Simulated scan of single mutants.
Amino acid sequence: MKREFKELFNAFGKQRAPFFFVMDYAQKQGYAKALRGLDEDILYALDTPTLPPEGFTCKAFSWHKEPPCKEEYLEKFNAVIDEIKAGNTYMLNLTAPTKITLSCDLKSLFYATKARFKLYFKDQFVAFSPERFVRIENNTIHTFPMKGTMDASIPNAKALLLADEKEKAEHVMVVDLLRNDLSRVAKNVRVEQFRYVEQIHTAEGDLLQVSSHIQGELEENWHAHIGDIFFQLLPAGSISGTPKRSSVEIIERIEGYERGFYTGIFGVYDGEKLDSAVLIRFIEKCEEGYVFKSGGGITLLSDGKKEYDELCDKVYLPVF
């Protein structure tokens, strides 16, 4: 599957043919198709506003969440800490599904929510992500790892977030990981902006999140190697861990569920430039109803109860 999609991405790029793509976390499932023939049951937005089509009415909706079992989460958290102490990982993104009840369909939710990057995919899932994966333009590749979250209503929240040693350590690790990842496909890789804070509006209050900007230079023929570039960078460092290979193996053993398309990526190549996002803030339809998948980075400085609270805080709907 991975080789098939790598070759397909490269073929689109060689032809300078605009295409849409989505890839799951484990690179076992994916979809890539020319924009001119894109399926009608796929809706997306990449840093652009979205409005419902004429005649489409967004139904008023309500929702309810049932947080995952705290004791089960803490068992997994402690298992990750043991792996860190053993030197098998230094930072690992631990995630869990939260059962939710929705009074509307996923398409209505796509139009009713606000986010920089949104995807509605075949009535299977919807994502409203704040995190770009990579952008390629003018032979330059950019990535924007996001690590560090805090409730914006806390007094002096921005200063506290930037001063938090655990959050800083976690962010430094993921920036170093992404800088090394970009160095595999680009030259003159550098951190353009380190630890800047953005505010996100949600139905339950505002959140602050910390990002950095890293960029590097690509060869002029990068269009013909889009697949080679992407599959050297996947899975995204911010949602796996460092070292990446051992962290991914630990995630598979400890998390106890399938991430599927959650923490995968989606994006669009328009023949000249490419933009993409990480599939987080993610709601998936399942047999029992809906689940919202969320998580956070774990380091040796992490506190299990705080990490559980952060995982729950990330289960939100962004509002206008």
Rank of each mutant, 00 (worst) to 15 (best):
Q232G: 05
S247P: 04
I141V: 15
A26L: 02
W63L: 05
K99Q: 14
P145K: 04
L317A: 01
S129A: 02
L208G: 00
F231S: 01
T98M: 08
A127M: 02
Q199Y: 08
G13D: 00
K2V: 10
I81E: 05
E66I: 08
S103C: 06
L274M: 14
G297D: 07
E204N: 15
S212T: 05
G267Q: 03
P52G: 11
G304Q: 06
A32Q: 05
L234D: 01
V248P: 09
C58K: 02
S108A: 10
G260Y: 03
Q15F: 02
E272C: 09
S62M: 10
Y290C: 15
V174C: 08
E284C: 11
P145Q: 03
R190Y: 14
V175F: 10
K293A: 12
T98C: 13
A115K: 08
S108W: 05
I298R: 02
E272F: 06
S240K: 07
F21G: 03
I254M: 06
L38M: 12
E165I: 08
V248C: 15
M23V: 15
N78R: 12
P97A: 06
N88F: 06
K122G: 02
S302F: 00
N93T: 00
I100S: 09
C58D: 13
L178D: 08
L233Y: 01
E66S: 13
D176R: 01
K70Q: 07
E75G: 09
R184P: 07
H225Q: 10
Q199V: 12
K85P: 06
L317P: 07
N78S: 12
N88I: 02
I229D: 00
I283A: 04
F121V: 03
F320P: 14
S247C: 14
K70L: 10
L106P: 04
Y257M: 12
M23F: 14
M1T: 02
S153K: 14
